[in-house]
Write a protein that binds this DNA or RNA. Structure first.
Lengths: 154, 154
DNA sequence: ATGATACAAAAACTCTATTTTTTGTATCAT
DNA sequence: ATGATACAAAAAATAGAGTTTTTGTATCAT
């Protein structure tokens, strides 16, 4: 029943995008409808809708079209298995960045930088530091005595 | 035993920060030691170490001091319960952004924008769109017929 | 209705020059 | 050793002019 392909008007109504945007995005290859009528009119599939919706969200999040394109480039570069990133992946968008979460990893779709500070790592750091202290044990106690002036500090 | 307070040298050795940085950060209020000796010498607590370490990580991640300060401001604004964000919270840093994860929410510590695209939401959107279609049912089928030219499109 | 085109306004980007921040090095007093 | 200070180099932020991109509006042909 709703195997549907959607016309421009419908897509505009559903996604909140303007006709102008749809045609420009089509022209520039950002989101291209998956099929056309014999008459050459665009017909958007459901997955197209999702791509459009995602792109609009990115736009609403102040990510410019140019950046969205960069995202798509690095996404297909880093995740070649993803045919249509805007459809398949989940993104965290904020400020200047589009974060992509993929399994254990997270990376910035704009720069490709893979860079995460997981909670666990911070906890591990505390231990690491604690373990580092013995090396300083000598200096430490020495200074502690010398700095006895500090006295009641706690 | 290791209830310790740490001297400048020790802190520098442990965190990898320079003396200059420690004093500048102290002076500008980025990370201030929790206590001083009677002689007026800084003594960093363990939680100070963590704050310093976190700040250094942000620096290494190309977040400038100025941005780190902005982060701290919005963090204490958005999460007033967090006394020392650099110690308590876990951050995801990438590119230009410092993401803060706090329970279900995530937001950009730089802009304060709270903006996340969870996977679940995307799935829900699909349903939402599907539910929106009936409203367009009339146009839809009408257009489908008219656009019968499209024929074999599937 | 759709698509193509043209023109103009708005938004975003680039590049450069300038200013401010941050850090290193060195010196001095405690 | 620590902290304070001063000077200079490096890094980052800011401001502005000029360019490109994106979008709205309108017109026309199918």
């Amino acid at each position: 029943m709703t195997t549907g392909l959607f016309s421009r008007q419908q897509v505009a109504a559903i996604t909140g995008l303007s006709s102008r945007q749809l045609s420009y995005w089509r022209k520039t290859g950002l989101v291209v409808p998956q099929c056309y009528t014999a008459g050459g009119h665009a017909r958007y599939s459901f997955s197209d809708l999702i791509a459009l919706r995602t792109a609009k969200r990115l736009l609403d999040a102040k990510i410019s079209l140019q950046r969205i394109r960069i995202c798509l480039q690095s996404l297909t570069r880093f995740l070649p298995t993803a045919d249509r990133p805007l459809v398949e992946l989940s993104l965290v968008v904020t400020g200047d960045v589009v974060l992509v979460f993929h399994g254990q990893h997270a990376f910035d779709a704009l720069t490709g930088q893979q860079w995460v500070f997981p909670i666990a790592e911070l906890a591990a750091d505390v231990d690491k530091m604690r373990r580092q202290l013995p090396e300083q044990g000598d200096l430490f106690s020495a200074d502690q005595k010398k700095a006895g002036e500090g006295g009641t500090a706690r």
